[in-house]
Structures are given as C-alpha cells and as structure tokens.
Design a protein around this nucleic acid. Structure first.
Lengths: 138, 138
DNA sequence: CCCTAAAAAGACATATAAAGTCTTCTTAGG
DNA sequence: CCTAAGAAGACTTTATATGTCTTTTTAGGG
C-alpha cells in the first residue's frame, strides 16, 4: 500500500531533470520525455498540471518549452507529489470526520493523522535542488 | 495518494471490534460484520487472510467463529494493515533497486526509504489493545 | 499573412486493481 | 445425517490508472 503511481514517479523524474538544467533555460517537453523515459503525451499532461500551479513556466510556439517556475531550492518534493497525486491522505476520515461515522469512538483516527504528518514532513524537507544534484545528464 | 483501501479499513474495524471482546470468546463473522457495518462476504475474505497468518483463530461448524490469535496488546496496527494491504511501499524501487534502472543516480530513493520507515514506525507503535479501548460495544 | 513549431485541452481507449457476490466444499457438533 | 459455521475459488462490477488521439491555441519566422 501507500504506493506512488506512475504519474507521480514520472512527475518527479521529469521535474528533477528540468531542475538539473541551467536556470532559465527553456527545455522541450520531447527532450525531457526522452531523457527520463516517459511517454511524451503522458508527461505533457503532468507538466500542464505543474504549469497551472506555477511549478513550471511554459512557452508555446516556436522556441517554446518549459522552465522551472522557481529556483529548485524553493520547490519541495511534497509540492511536486501533491501537485499530481493530490493531497496525502492515509485515510478518508483524516480530512472529513463526517466521512467516518464512527469517529466518535474511533481511536485509529489520530494514528492516521500522525502518519500523514510524518510523510508530509519528510517530503517537505527535500528540495529539487538536492534531488537534481549529481544527475547532470545535461 | 497513500490512501488506505476499503479492505484495509474494514480489516481494522473488524479486528478492533474483536479485540474489544472478552479474551477467548468466539465471535460469529456475521455478528462482527453487522457491528462494524461491512459486507459479510467481504469481511470473510479479510478474516481468512488474518487466519492464515495467525492474527485470528477460526473455528468451523456449529458454535464456530473467530477469536484473536494473540493478546490484543501483542498485535500491532502495522501487522493488521500489512496483512491485507501488503507491505508498505511508497515506491517500487524501495524494494528492488533493479526495478529502478536509474537507481545509480536516483537521489529520491533514500527519501522513499525514509517515508517507509516513518510510516511503519508509527503503525508499529499502536496495538489493538489501545485501539479497542473505549469502544466496548460488546 | 501564412507556415511551422510548440504547448493546451479534451475526448477517447485500454488495462489493472478494488470492491463485492455467488457457488461449492469442508469441518464440526448435535 | 442434518445443520451451522468458515474456506476456497470463480465470477462480476466498478473505479482508477495509464495512456493515446485529435483539435485548438499561441508564438515566431519567412
């Protein structure tokens, strides 16, 4: 359980690759897709999601492509993962207690909250800069 | 992401209910299913999995049913969850590095390991005894 | 102004897994 | 040998993951 989907994995690979590029250099989606071995059409969807929330900037037309929306040290793994996978929710009742009609006597509830906080805490400490370090495959 | 499935949720509800019963009392599956509001046929599958690894003991025929396999303070939430959901694996490459052909230059790898350890650590600290406390709906 | 290169958007298709059901078999007690 | 349980496995249905395809929009260059 708790497994990252392909989408999440591809998302990380793709944006980490971009983060390894010189800042402000525009990068073709097709180039990224080839470099990280992800279906280009699928990666396109992912980068569109990134673009909407400003994790990356996109440029259309000739000479277009993508670049990071912020400096890599200011983008956390948590942001990347939640951008495409949605919020980290070990159990429905963590968000909306009313989803869990037994919440009044549910001792499991706080445990899931703890799991959620733990996972988010780990992912929040990691930035794209760290992840891109050493993976300079131009 | 990272969401527990229904199966996992049902599994917890069911075995926590059982843990709230007096020790060594045999409990009908149908009674448990009704009490925790889970489809009986589905819960049957879940308890069969529990039975195979000794988390519960089962008795067939007239007067049969289920009881906990061990004292509730000796069964952790981690065991329960992994029994039905499988091992906690945030990313495939955590288990088998060969699944991740870019592991040589993959800095994300240790992060997932940390997530895995964190989640397991939390779930391992919680026992059925604690979860059953206060939920004495006989 | 057109032609081409790119991303954006949305509909579509397929595959896998989750969620649940049904039927038959085995075991045990009365 | 009849009935009450759980065991086992096939089956169905639904949802989600994983893509693909087509059309549209945007921008640059001749």
């Amino acid at each position: 359980m708790m497994e990252l989907t392909r989408k999440g994995e591809y998302a990380i690979r793709g944006i980490v690759h971009l983060a390894g590029k010189p800042l402000d250099s525009v990068c073709l989606l097709s180039e990224i897709a080839a470099a990280v071995d992800v279906p280009p059409t699928f990666l396109a969807k992912i980068f569109q999601q990134f673009s909407k929330i400003g994790l990356v900037k996109s440029f259309r037309g000739t000479g277009g492509g993508f670049m990071l929306g912020r400096a890599p040290e200011n983008i956390t793994l948590l942001e990347v993962v939640e951008a495409v996978e949605g919020p980290i929710i070990p159990n429905r009742c963590v968000i909306n207690p009313s989803d869990c009609d037994r919440s009044s006597y549910c001792n499991v509830h706080p445990v899931w909250k703890q799991v959620q906080d733990g996972v988010r805490g780990v992912l929040e400490q990691v930035t794209l800069k760290e992840l891109a370090a050493g993976s300079s495959k131009s």
